[in-house]
Amino acid sequence: MPLADDPGGWVAGLLLPWLVLGFVNAAVFARLSRAQLLEVMHEGYVRTARGKGLSARRAHLKYTARGAAPPLVQLLGLEAGALFGGAFITETVFGLGGVGKLAVDAVVGNDLPTVMGTVLLAALCVVVFVAVADLVVAWLDPRVRLA
């Protein structure tokens, strides 16, 4: 269902594939978030923030969340890049004609130019997203910036 014709239908049609892809990644993010937050919560500066008189909620939102973010952002960059490169199984299951299906069909059918094209596209997506993620991490954590 093309977006221009029927936005509601478009969303409805793509909702399930989105959820599927989301679940897979959500598990990884949940695990990592928990580990990161636990670690950062016990850092000295969070205790200082509480010692200043910040309420627990404020302290955790402002300090713990920001401290835990860098690895999550980096993971996001990688995952987003990979996603844009193509999600073959999901596309096949839901009958969507996506880049992933295109790539696999091309490999199976020995269609070299298409294979090269899809691989290049996937690589480009990964590189761009990871680069953006790195920039965001540098903004979040001043220690990472170049001198």
Binding site: Y45, T48, G51, K52, G53, G67, D141, R143
Partner: peptide, 20 residues
Amino acid sequence: VRGARAAMVFQDALAALSPL
């Protein structure tokens, strides 16, 4: 009370100050 009536200087300033 914290920060106003009573305040604390922590031991390891590098760990106690937010690096961010």
